[in-house]
Simulated assay, not measured.
Amino acid sequence: MTYYESTGHLLLTPVDREAPARAVRLRELGLGERADPELDAFARRVAEVLAAPYTGVNFIGEERQFFAGLHHAPDAPPSGYPARVLARDHGYCPHVVVRRRALVLQDVRDFARFAGNAVVDGSGVRSYLGAPVTDRRGVVLGTVCGADVVPRRWGTEGLAAVKELAAELVDLLHAREDRRS
């Protein structure tokens, strides 16, 4: 579904009606407020699997995004991306969360909705691949994602891999929750 402001302009970030429930669930799980070494390690693994220079485990709150897991390859091209905290209207992960399905962008500049995003000009991101992290209650907590500063074909293999990684992350988060119970 496409959302417009009352002025008739296309919203770059879709309306997120599930944000309040997600924020409560993230607090219950203790996610989205601090860097997490285990999730940083998971993001490194995502980088290896996807061969992507920038990867993350991103939790989407009501007002911002927080990369609790983050990896920037040492030999990656210079870029301001990723940062631990991004505004909700930056990047592509909020689209994945609201749509509740994976997003593959070979070249973000090929799509008007995504080409105007602040991470394109501010950080040089040109391609993106992300999958939703949906917990056992059906709440989409955030994403597992990869990005590059050059256009690239992620292919069906990349799409399958990022979905599998998201499922692995859900298992990890559920195991943590079960240990605390």
Rank of each mutant, 00 (worst) to 15 (best):
M1Q: 12
Y3N: 12
E5T: 14
E5G: 04
E5F: 14
S6I: 14
G8C: 04
G8D: 02
L10T: 06
P14E: 06
P14C: 10
R17N: 12
E18K: 11
A21M: 12
L26K: 03
R27Q: 07
R27N: 01
R27K: 11
G30F: 05
G30M: 08
E33S: 13
E33T: 15
D36L: 10
D36F: 09
L39D: 00
L39S: 03
D40S: 06
A43I: 07
V46I: 14
A47P: 05
A47T: 05
E48H: 13
A52Y: 13
A52R: 06
P53C: 01
G56R: 01
N58K: 06
I60L: 13
E62W: 05
E62Q: 14
E62M: 12
E62F: 08
F66V: 14
F67S: 09
F67G: 00
A68H: 01
A68M: 05
G69T: 08
G69D: 06
G69R: 05
A76K: 02
P77C: 08
P82F: 09
A83E: 15
R84Y: 12
D89A: 12
D89F: 14
G91M: 07
P94L: 07
P94T: 08
P94F: 10
V97F: 08
V97A: 09
V98Y: 11
V98M: 13
R99A: 15
R99Y: 13
R100Q: 15
A102L: 13
L103D: 02
V108N: 00
D110N: 04
R113M: 04
N117K: 01
V120T: 04
G122C: 01
S123Q: 03
S123F: 02
V125H: 01
R126I: 03
Y128W: 11
Y128E: 01
L129N: 02
A131P: 06
D135T: 02
R137A: 10
G138I: 03
G138E: 02
V139E: 05
V139Y: 04
V140F: 07
G146N: 01
A147Y: 03
A147I: 03
D148E: 06
D148Q: 03
V149R: 11
R152K: 08
R152G: 04
L159E: 13
L159W: 08
L159K: 09
A161Y: 04
K163A: 05
K163E: 15
L165P: 05
L165I: 09
H174L: 08
H174V: 13
A175R: 11
E177L: 07
D178F: 10
D178R: 11
R179T: 08
S181G: 14
